[in-house]
Design a protein around this nucleic acid. Sequence first.
DNA 1: AATACATATGAGCGATTGTTCATATACTCA
DNA 2: TGAGTATATGAACAATCGCTCATATGTATT
Lengths: 132, 132
Amino acid sequence: MASQTERLERLLGTQLGRCCQSDVDDRLATLNGYQESIPADLSSDLNALKVLSTETRHRIVRLLAAAERDLCVCEFKPLLDVSDSAISHALSDLREAGLVTRRKDGQWRYYGATPRAEAILDALDRTRGDGE
Amino acid sequence: MASQTERLERLLGTQLGRCCQSDVDDRLATLNGYQESIPADLSSDLNALKVLSTETRHRIVRLLAAAERDLCVCEFKPLLDVSDSAISHALSDLREAGLVTRRKDGQWRYYGATPRAEAILDALDRTRGDGE
DNA sequence: AATACATATGAGCGATTGTTCATATACTCA
DNA sequence: TGAGTATATGAACAATCGCTCATATGTATT
């Protein structure tokens, strides 16, 4: 049975030219340190990214960011090639993910991009086309 | 049959207190302006977000960012609760999405986070917990 | 050359997803 | 109050996804 650290041991042999148990322990401690620097609950980050990763929802947020104002649900209609229902579902998912806000005005609903949404789009824009 | 702009026309009636054809045309032109400011090809952005939106791949990138150095494939093993194959698939997806780089050293492979990956994580970190 | 090893790749399976259709809710105006 | 409108919600279905297992590729060592 292959242990969890069998290969790590060999890697350290390559990197250090030697490898005793304390070398393995030290490296494992270092790796655990990286692990601990990760937010305990990733679900909100993962959800924000997932929600922004499909075309309909992504486009909605880009439109809101470009508009620099809240848009009414019906303003998305001529710009997106999906049903009203799909737009509504998309906005609902975006709101739950903290990427858009909603404001009611009579029968109309206005949505706006949150700073979180804008920060993510900005990160993409600033790094688009980077080879690496 | 409901036209694409039927509701928009009524919205403008509400917003402007009137609505003739030129009002509709103006608004449509404005909306099309937003549309045009969106990158023509979203697929690379969408893919980057999708790839970062599941736990295994996201965790890999967070580990690389925390490490501030390239990590060997075998170093992920004790930190992730999935098979070697899943780690390899994940790294391959991340590389294709431009989120990690790969460096070969003998039989070992070292991966590192790209500026694009770091920018996205940073956007998430800076805005985590924003109510809106 | 043969064996061992590190990583990669492809098929396949259960689980999740984005959409549409049907329907519900809530507001407006006669 | 009743008809019309704007948006939201739930079910359902095809499509996609993430994982594991089996196997392939390329490197090191003997």
